[in-house]
């Protein structure tokens, strides 16, 4: 699936951020220390165990109480080594968690069970994050419900997304490619489905992507995708009248009764206004709970949404025939 999968037994993850090598270096340093102590202790155990194995039943061992010199040595050496580990860990942590000033900021909202990203230019994505290579990216994260944690192993970094506060995470991707994105803090039912991909792209590709050139969908298809997945409209506007928001199938072109007593025709302008300023036109019988999408959808996306809702009208019309 991704590059390392040609190894039969994967031993090491890909490395694709500016500080990944530091984490790896620390890792190898720690492995070296661990191997050193493990070899010493295991070798000593085997040597003693064989050399001093019981020669005669109930023979007693030598009368040795201890040695202050040895105790001091094996207190001091692990202590000093652990301090080097601490320092190494602190330095790497500082690099991971101090976002540079000139970083491009992307907003991240964790929600059971999806990641929502918003680019500075307004594009929104879900469970996919497109970023340019060799550019410092700062993620400003929060959560709508429980604690989540955004984790990209190839970047060797992660941070919690905590409801009620903002946390940050930064990285600079060094290699174009497609990398795993996980939620690492257990968040309930579909925790293991709260995954996605980070696409690291060359600057030019990124700009093309931003401009929407990668899309080859019709506006109605794009609108459907926005409606059902990316914007999550479908969670309230369902196929039935049971949803928190009104049913939209067959709406286009019909008369709509509003809470203020007015009756309006559901045309393109009405749909557009309802998305951008929902509180202005509340349909009778519904609560004013819809958030505004002003600034969250581009004009292109608005068009796509309107087209999609129009197409819903046609479908039901054709079905009723």
């Amino acid at each position: 699936m991704i590059q390392q999968s040609n190894n039969w037994v994967p031993l090491f993850p890909e490395k694709a951020s500016s500080f990944a090598w530091q984490v790896d270096a620390l890792y190898f340093y720690l492995i070296a220390i661990s191997a050193f102590f493990t070899v010493i202790v295991v070798a000593a155990i085997f040597y003693f165990a064989i050399k001093y194995r019981e020669k005669e039943k109930f023979q007693n061992g030598a009368e040795i109480h201890g040695s202050l010199l040895l105790e001091t040595t094996w207190t001091a050496i692990p202590f000093l080594l652990s301090m080097t580990i601490f320092l190494g860990g602190a330095i790497v942590y500082y690099n991971q968690y101090r976002p540079p000033k000139d970083a491009m900021e992307i907003y991240v909202v964790g929600k059971q069970w999806m990641w929502k990203f918003q680019h500075p230019t307004g594009q929104r994505e879900i469970n996919e994050l497109h970023v340019p290579v060799n550019r410092r990216i700062k993620l400003i994260m929060t959560s709508e419900d429980v604690i989540h944690d955004l984790y990209v192993p190839a970047f060797r970094t992660k941070a919690d997304a905590v409801p009620g506060r903002y946390t940050t995470l930064w990285f600079e991707a060094t290699k174009p490619g497609k990398y795993h994105l996980y939620c690492a803090e257990y968040c309930g039912l579909n925790h293991s489905g709260m995954i996605g991909w980070v696409y690291v792209m060359e600057q030019k590709d990124y700009e093309n992507w931003l401009a929407g050139n990668v899309s080859s969908q019709t506006p109605a298809q794009a609108g459907r995708e926005l409606f059902e997945a990316k914007l999550g409209c479908a969670s309230c506007h369902q196929q039935t009248d049971q949803g928190r928001g009104p049913k939209l199938a067959g709406l286009f072109g019909k008369q709509v009764k509003l809470t203020n007593g007015q009756t309006v025709v559901a045309d393109e302008e009405y749909i557009r206004n309802s998305i951008l300023n929902p509180q202005g036109q509340i349909v009778e019988g519904y609560q004013p709970i819809m958030p505004t999408f002003k600034g969250q959808v581009t004009e292109e996306q608005l068009v796509a949404l309107v087209e999609y809702i129009k197409s819903l009208g046609n479908e039901t019309a054709s079905m009723s025939k």
Binding site: L26, S34, T38, G89, Y94, K158, A184, E185
Partner: peptide, 30 residues
């Protein structure tokens, strides 16, 4: 007991990995 020493050694040493902050960021919750 001898098995304990070997396993606890590895368990303890890998605790150092997790105690080193920079390493912990990558490894925690994995």
């Amino acid at each position: 007991a001898l098995g304990f020493i070997g396993l606890f050694l590895i368990g303890g040493l890998t605790g150092l990995f997790l105690g080193a902050m920079g390493m912990n960021v990558h490894l925690t919750d994995t």
